[in-house]
Amino acid sequence: MARLTVAHFLCVLGFLPKALPALIETQQTVTAALRDDARLTCRLTQTKDVVQITWHRLRHAENTFLASYTEKYGERVNPKLERKVEFADAALQRTSIVVKNLTEEDKGCYRCMFNTVSEGALTGQTCLQVYELHEPVLRVGGSDSTVVSCWATGRPAPTVSIDVLQKDLQLVANGSVSVANSNGSVTVNTTAVLSGHPVNGKQVVCTAQVFSSSQTTTMIFPDLDEEPEPESRDGLYAEESGPSLSYICAPLISLALIILILCLVIFRRKLNNKKNNSELEKKMTSERPQDDNTTTPLIEEGTKAKRRTPFKKTPSRMSPSRKSPSNPLTLKPRELFFNSGDKTNCPKLECLNENC
């Protein structure tokens, strides 16, 4: 006690050095869920002559450049990480970056560096933890419905606990079982036995926690006289396993009925069209004449009248006294020439035949 008093007295007098405040203020650990965004911030507690700010990621002994800022050139981001990292706050005394759509590869420590003219590089560091946590599932089992089970899946392995809200009920923990999944996550199943009666209408709370993040599920004990709800293949209640089967089947049945009605309508139309075409073809066939060589009554009557009319010879234009020669060879060539053409302007020909 005396030594502490002396040390405090010397510190007040200035003989012992005082602890210097941190020049860079930052959050040592940042936790964020998988596929979320994380914001990392560094801030100078004192004003310095800063000319440049840079961010690096330290992971597996690798130092990866992320981004930098200067008043002259502004913000610069690693071209390979343009969709991953962006500035949220760019200034010479304070800087913040956002790491988007977090994956397991993004966890690690990030270093912010303030490059000054007089004091060199001032460095701060913050570490990012990426977690995965799914909503816990609570179930009541056993012959007397007094066994309570709760499980949750997360990365890293979550902490699963079961509690009751009523003071007249107690839970005796039986233990937890962890199962590693192929994707790196872990499923933890915690089981407890409920003591105290009656349990009808009592509430049980299951909490799953990873780092500072937690998720809670609450369930009310069912009536012991009622039949338990059927379980799915995964051991979950039907209402916990997903949407009811009726909600899935109803739209499918409606769609099938609509398709069936459309098919019936199309088939009926095709059948009617085929029937109409058949009737039209029959009608056209009945109206078509049986024999193409049969003549109409009018033509037939004209033919008969023509047959009854005697043939009359057309009188010859030549005078009876001047008959045409029976043998054309007796005519002169000139006469043959004019007889074959127009006779109106022909000169009067002399007949060489004695019978002219």
Rank of each mutant, 00 (worst) to 15 (best):
R3N: 05
L4I: 08
C11Y: 02
L13P: 04
P17Q: 13
K18S: 11
T26N: 11
Q27D: 10
V30N: 05
T31W: 03
D37W: 04
R39C: 08
C42P: 00
T45A: 14
T47M: 10
T47C: 03
T54S: 13
H56D: 04
N63F: 00
A67E: 01
S68I: 01
Y69H: 07
K72W: 00
N78E: 14
K80V: 12
K80M: 13
E86K: 14
L92P: 06
Q93S: 10
Q93C: 05
S96H: 00
N101R: 09
N101D: 11
E104W: 07
G108I: 12
G108Y: 03
Y110W: 05
C112A: 09
V117H: 03
L122I: 14
G124Y: 05
G124T: 06
Q125C: 02
L128N: 02
Q129V: 00
Y131P: 00
E135Q: 11
G141F: 04
S145F: 11
T153A: 07
G154I: 11
V160H: 03
L165S: 13
Q166D: 15
K167G: 02
G184S: 07
N189I: 09
N189C: 08
T190M: 02
S195F: 02
P198K: 01
V205D: 00
C206P: 02
F211S: 11
T216M: 09
T216Q: 14
T218W: 01
F221W: 15
P222N: 11
P222V: 05
D223Q: 12
D223K: 08
L224V: 12
L224M: 08
S232T: 15
S232D: 15
D234K: 11
G235I: 07
L236A: 09
E239Q: 00
P243I: 12
P243T: 10
P243L: 09
Y247S: 08
I248H: 06
L255Y: 02
I258W: 07
C263L: 14
V265N: 11
F267R: 15
L271G: 12
L271W: 09
K275P: 00
S278L: 06
R288S: 07
N293E: 06
T294C: 07
P297H: 01
G302Q: 13
R307V: 12
R308H: 13
R308I: 06
T314F: 03
S326E: 13
T330C: 14
L331F: 13
K332I: 04
L336G: 12
T344R: 05
P347T: 10
